[in-house]
């Protein structure tokens, strides 16, 4: 099938899809007129029931916590898949951890980049930690905080060499931290069952002030576990890809 044939078939099929889409669009209530009962119902009761002022995180980790367990395990499996797929193939042997690009004409990292990366590593770690532990007050949460923590580790790679990055995030510790994160979330749910409540029901005591860190029960705890799991997953992915690029060479 030639490329232009492919293009014509796509245009015809796309026109059909667009017709169906526009037909479906005519039944929507229009932009800005959200009618559904679920959203306003949750908004009415969320702050009083969970003592969390961040309603989105309350939904993610309390009302629809089971969906979030599923999403987190998708993340876990995807990171594991990257590690498995990128393992060494037959006929490829790993050289010792020496910088392979030493003979290529690569300009050295400018000192401005290294200094800025070094200066920003600490604040980014702090910001990521703050995001991951304040899910119940502001627009923060485990997912955003975890990704920011992973970005801090990439800053370490930018400000130094790959070997420094490897020393800061050895593969077995990253794997263990990711497993602790994923397992911790599931364990919180199971311990609710052990107490005779439904799976993932909020069982820690709710505090007095809505939106404080110590109130809102298990939401803060779950968000923390999600944060470290997401951070470890992304550090694992980036570390695997970096190792592929820099260390492994086709045998011989």
């Amino acid at each position: 099938m030639t490329p232009s044939q492919r293009r014509w078939i796509f245009l015809v099929a796309g026109a059909g899809l667009a017709a169906f889409y526009l037909w479906g669009l005519s039944g929507l209530p229009g932009f800005g007129n959200y009618p559904g009962p679920y959203g306003p119902a949750i908004l009415r009761i969320a702050v009083a029931q969970t003592n969390a002022t961040g309603v989105v995180s309350a939904i993610n980790f309390d009302y629809r916590g089971f969906d979030t367990v599923g999403e987190e395990f998708i993340l876990f499996v995807a990171a594991t898949g990257v590690a498995i797929v990128l393992r060494m193939l037959r006929g490829e042997r790993e050289r010792s951890a020496v910088d392979e690009a030493a003979d290529r004409n690569v300009p050295p990292t400018s000192s401005a980049v290294r200094m800025v990366a070094l200066l920003f590593t600490g604040p980014v770690v702090l910001a990521g930690w703050w995001l991951a532990s304040h899910a119940q007050t502001d627009p923060s949460g485990g997912f955003q905080g975890g990704v920011m923590l992973a970005t801090a580790f990439v800053l370490i790679y930018l400000s130094g060499e790959f070997l420094v990055f490897k020393r800061f995030s050895p593969a077995d510790i990253t794997d263990a931290v990711e497993a602790v994160g994923a397992g911790g979330y599931a364990a919180i749910g199971v311990s609710a069952v052990a107490m005779g409540l439904a799976y993932l029901k909020d069982f820690l005591p709710l505090g007095q002030v809505p939106g404080a860190v110590s109130s809102s029960g298990t939401i803060a705890l779950i968000s923390f576990f999600v944060g470290i799991e997401v951070a470890a997953a992304f550090i694992l992915i980036v570390a695997e890809l970096l190792e592929q690029t820099l260390l492994i060479r086709q045998g011989g």
Partner: peptide, 23 residues
């Protein structure tokens, strides 16, 4: 939607380009 903003900013502007450039 400030929550989704934070997610999209860290992922779409930082992490995805890093992973694609490494590939």
């Amino acid at each position: 939607a400030p929550d989704v903003t934070l997610s999209e900013l860290t992922i779409g502007a930082v992490l995805l380009p890093i992973v694609i450039l490494l590939t």
